[in-house]
Computed example of a mutant assay.
Amino acid sequence: MKKRFLRTIPFAALCLAVAFTSCNSGSSTKAEATTQSDSSKYNTTIDGKEVRLYTLKNKSGASVSISNYGGRVVSLLVPDKNDKLTDVVLGYDSIGAYRKKGEPFFGALIGRYGNRIGKGKFTLEGKEYNLQLNDGVNTLHGGTDGFFSKVWEAKQVDSQKLELSYVSKDGEAGYPGTLNVKVVYTLKDDNALQIDYTATTDKATVVNLTNHAYFNLNGEGDSTILNHELVIDANAYTPVDSTLIPTGKLTPVAGTAFDFNKAKTIGKSIDENDQQLKYGKGYDHNFALTHHDGKKPVAKVTSPVTGITLEVYTVEPGLQFYSGNFLTGADHDGKGGKAYPHRSAFCLETQHFPDAPNHANFASTVLKPGETYQTSTTYKFVK
């Protein structure tokens, strides 16, 4: 697999339906937040930094609202088959809910390392680094001090583009090197939400950035995603152990519950008698993508209720498909007081492979001084 750390790569987002209006368009050196009164539920100060909600809106009326707390996609309104705007991402009605312990990373930017690192340690240039353990014996999504919990500097470029930046200091969460990160959200007129990531470091480190949006194309708050039809362009996946760490093998999907090369519902094979499905309580696995040049979709998901199809484009070699197995519906603190029950959302996290720093046969996630990490993912909604 090809490394994506190049010095230069020319490679080549929603308001809540009632609560928010779009931000003013035009260039700005300082980000402007939405001004509707309900946005006050997202506007606060954390660690001495201002937290605001920013709304992007395109010419067709689709919109995305993003908090600079964790760079979180709070809502995403796209038209269904009847041109009704439908919010397709799970989330909360206030910033406080995103800060509670055990919150499942709704809509967040994930770093310094997306997904899991086994036993919270890796060796780089002869030195062992120990990370924060926040998933049993492992590190998940950067640890307890991950990017999902940081206040990012925000600059709204225009009505359809938001730039977020964050400086992760040397040693933060156990990772080496000071990492300068920029993430740009762009809501395009064809209802595509493009996310562009760049980063540089002053010391060799590992980097694996992604977004953790939870989707339900029936509309957030719907009770299931098992009726969604899914296609994933992958001939293999990385099986895991009982703690969901890859074994290091690549296993063909043919003839297994993991074969989504032809469209089938998420629920069709999810409860098969397969040890991998038992480990994940459903799908929580990384797929090795067959093509990932950003030009053709690596995954497609369609709702039979709204007719909305999500297409995923990426230059990443892996895609973590998670079927919302650890959602419980125990709390009614979703949007509008909704509960989010078991398997009521799915995630398609574009990434390099989980635990890659500990597997020499996986594509490298090492970033060195003088190199630029650059990657791009697009979530496009069609009907």
Rank of each mutant, 00 (worst) to 15 (best):
F258M: 11
N216M: 06
N261T: 14
H292V: 08
N218V: 04
K268Y: 10
L187W: 06
Y185E: 04
H292L: 04
I270L: 10
A263F: 03
D189S: 08
T247G: 04
G294T: 10
T200I: 07
F287K: 00
D189F: 09
E220N: 10
D202L: 09
D233Y: 07
Y283H: 04
L226K: 15
A263R: 07
H291W: 00
I266G: 03
S242M: 10
G294W: 02
F260V: 03
E220T: 10
Y279E: 03
E229M: 10
N235T: 14
A236F: 14
T251P: 00
V253P: 03
A288F: 09
E272C: 09
L277A: 04
H285G: 04
I225P: 02
L244S: 06
E272A: 15
I225M: 06
N273F: 06
T238E: 07
H228T: 07
V184D: 12
P297V: 05
T290S: 15
H212E: 02
F215Q: 06
K296G: 10
G294F: 07
H291E: 14
L277W: 02
N211S: 13
P252K: 13
D202A: 12
S223N: 12
N286T: 12
G255C: 04
G248I: 08
Y237K: 02
K278M: 04
V206G: 08
K249L: 13
K268P: 01
Q275I: 13
K268S: 13
K203D: 02
N208T: 02
D222M: 05
T290A: 14
E220K: 03
A254V: 01
D222A: 15
S242R: 13
G294N: 13
P252Q: 07
N235Y: 08
K203S: 12
N227R: 09
A234I: 01
T247C: 09
A192D: 11
T256Q: 01
T265C: 08
A299S: 15
F287G: 00
S269H: 14
T224Y: 14
E220V: 03
Q194D: 12
T210V: 01
Y279G: 01
T251R: 12
D222P: 01
T210D: 00
G280Q: 01
Y279S: 01
K281A: 13
K281M: 08
K188R: 14
K296Q: 15
K268M: 11
G282T: 00
K262M: 11
Y237F: 15
A204C: 07
I195H: 01
V206W: 08
K203G: 00
G221Q: 07
N191E: 10
D259L: 05
I266C: 04
A199I: 03
Y283D: 01
L217V: 07
K278I: 13
F287C: 00
A299F: 02
V231D: 12
A199V: 03
T290H: 12
V183F: 02
T224K: 14
T200R: 06
K268F: 05
I232R: 12
T302H: 06
I232A: 12
G294S: 08
Y237R: 00
T224G: 12
D190E: 13
D271L: 12
D189H: 10
F215Y: 15
L187H: 05
A192F: 05
A254P: 01
